[in-house]
């Protein structure tokens, strides 16, 4: 067992165990903090996959923006009801059945997917070792995926407009206690 495998196993454990703990923890603050641990390990995993730019983006956007937003909302909505309930999951049989069907289908189709792996071919005949990862991502983004890049900008603008709209709705809500 060499160092690559050790690092991979550590990162895999550091992603799955906080994921499970985030899903089963009663306190939402603990759940969000466990997801933070998951995301930091995942950033390291992206680094071992050879993409330092995505590591930086992952830490800045996920850990810096999205999870802080989650924590802010959790602190704003201070509901401690769930910690007092004995059963804090939905007891829905249909959900469990759907999970089992979905996991079964995933494990059935994963062998088909893995059979496709030797057929992976680069879409464009560039040698990735010629330049840094960031150079290639920028080149792809601003040439081949320019339309998608602009569409992401439009989507984020729509999100901002939607948040402002919801905020206007909030001011119309009566009987506001805080």
């Amino acid at each position: 067992m060499d160092l690559n495998h050790l690092v991979f196993y550590y990162l895999a454990l550091g992603m799955t165990i906080p994921g499970i703990l985030a899903v089963i923890s009663r306190n939402p603050v603990h759940a969000v903090l466990w997801v933070l641990v998951l995301i930091l390990h995942q950033a390291l995993l992206l680094y071992t996959l050879g993409s330092e730019f995505l590591t930086a983006i992952q830490i800045i956007v996920y850990a810096g923006a999205v999870l802080v937003l989650f924590l802010f909302i959790v602190y704003m909505i201070n509901l401690r009801l769930e910690e007092r309930w004995k059963v804090f999951v939905r007891r829905s049989g249909i959900g469990l059945i759907l999970i089992f069907i979905f996991v079964f289908l995933l494990f059935k189709t994963i062998s088909v997917f893995l059979a496709l792996v030797p057929a992976f071919k680069p879409k464009l005949p560039y040698d990735l070792a010629q330049a840094s990862n960031l150079v290639w991502i920028a080149r792809y983004l601003f040439t081949h995926y320019l339309l998608q890049f602009e569409l992401i900008g439009v989507i984020l603008l729509i999100v901002v407009l939607g948040a402002v709209f919801i905020l206007k709705k909030l001011q119309e809500v009566k009987n506001d206690s805080f």
Binding site: P122, Y140, Y145, I155
Partner: peptide
Amino acid sequence: DTTGYVVVFFLIALAAA
């Protein structure tokens, strides 16, 4: 191939949205 990295870039933006 860098296409997957570009998809990850879009995925992170979509997750934030």
